[in-house]
């Protein structure tokens, strides 16, 4: 196998791995803090993606003016659509805003997802702390269906394409950097952006937990909730905020993923199943494990999609993640970086 082909698969695995890692990170945060298995997390990812769709629609709201001097092919006066943002901010700025709607949607997604997270935690999940895990799985599974159906009712069942900013359309030639022939190792710009963005978010979450007082308290609460409570700290409030943060992480992951894969209401469920596999492979409750397993499985999946591999083992691209999960779970019962005593009752 050529080196360029090998590197290309590593790169291809990174963007999918990033999405897996971000969703799995949020799932693990929720599980580690609240002890709740959240099957609605894929739906949060999907809602994030639809925040991007919503913002794009909002920015494209236009006024229609009739231009009497020109006519269309039917002889009627030509209709000219002018987006309102262009009227407000001038043509150049307006165009720029519309072009950059996906990155801008992050600003929309964070508060929206925080809010959804708070409502979910306070309104529903709070009542399930003391119930068995199977009940938590089932109620959040029901919620996931409801959220997906609501999105479907409003946006329809089809995929909606949301383009990346013009600046990032096209591909970057990595091969040229390391002295390969032109066109050997090219990779779309937006996927590079997505990977860097994922690293940034993961870094931020870890830094937040590691270097702030708030994060320290949360980590203490994860280790021993009761003692932290006895010290007079309102740990429930902090955990609710962590739920909001986890929801936002899933949300922004969804926002940035829209140019890679046009969102539809089923994307939440599609990612959820794999994300759970990722979490379990990484080790329930281990943040580092979730990120690691996300990238490993993403890269593994893209290697399995290579033609050489498929010819050798037909169908491997469809099952490699599950196969890896089975092997890892049987060889390392607690996943890659799992701790003892989590979810083993």
């Amino acid at each position: 196998m050529e080196l360029s082909a090998f590197l290309l698969q590593v790169l291809n695995g990174l963007d999918k791995g990033s999405a897996y890692a971000l969703i799995a990170l949020g799932l693990t945060l929720i599980f580690g803090t609240l002890g709740v298995v959240n099957f609605a997390h894929g739906a949060l990812f999907m809602i994030g993606a639809f925040c991007a769709v919503a913002l794009q629609r909002i920015l494209s709201i236009s006024t229609i003016t009739l231009d009497e001097t020109k006519t269309d092919f039917l002889g009627n006066p030509l209709k000219i659509k002018t987006p309102i943002v262009e009227e407000w901010f001038g043509e150049a700025t307006g165009q720029l805003l519309i072009d950059w709607s996906v990155p801008l949607a992050i600003l929309l997604a964070i508060p929206v997802m925080m809010l959804i997270g708070f409502i979910m935690e306070r309104g529903l999940i709070k009542h399930f702390y003391k119930r068995p895990h199977s009940d938590q799985i089932l109620v959040t599974f029901g919620l996931a269906i409801v959220l997906a159906e609501l999105i479907k009712a409003y946006y329809g069942a089809n995929q909606i394409s949301v383009p990346a900013p013009d600046m990032f359309i096209g591909s970057f030639d990595f091969g040229m950097l390391i002295g390969m022939a032109k066109g050997k190792l090219i990779y779309p710009y937006w996927r590079i952006v997505y990977f860097l963005f994922a690293l940034l978010i993961i870094g931020l979450v870890f830094a937040f937990l590691q270097f702030t007082t708030f994060g320290m308290v949360v980590r203490a609460g994860m280790a021993d909730r009761e003692t932290v409570g006895l010290l007079g700290i309102n740990i429930d409030k902090r955990f609710t905020i962590m739920f909001g943060i986890a929801a936002s992480v899933a949300g922004v992951a969804g926002v940035m993923y829209t140019p890679i894969n046009s969102p539809s209401y089923t994307m939440g469920m599609d990612f959820l199943v794999i994300s759970f596999v990722v979490v379990v492979v990484g080790g329930m409750g281990s943040l580092g494990g979730a990120v690691l397993a996300g990238f490993i499985l993403g890269i593994l999946e893209s290697f399995a999609s290579m033609r050489v591999v498929i010819e050798a083992i037909p169908g491997i691209n469809q099952v490699v993640i599950y196969l890896a999960a089975i092997v890892i779970l049987l060889a390392r019962p607690r996943g890659l970086l799992g701790r003892k005593g989590v979810m083993e009752s």
Binding site: V273, G315, L330, P333
Partner: peptide
């Protein structure tokens, strides 16, 4: 059944998804 709890659920899910993917493609 070598595992229990959520690990068991995920293992069965993984097997079923594998069967589904294989039935729809290679088999």
């Amino acid at each position: 059944l070598r595992r229990s709890g959520i690990y068991f659920s995920i293992l069965t899910l993984a097997f079923a998804q594998m069967s589904f993917a294989l039935a729809a493609s290679v088999l």
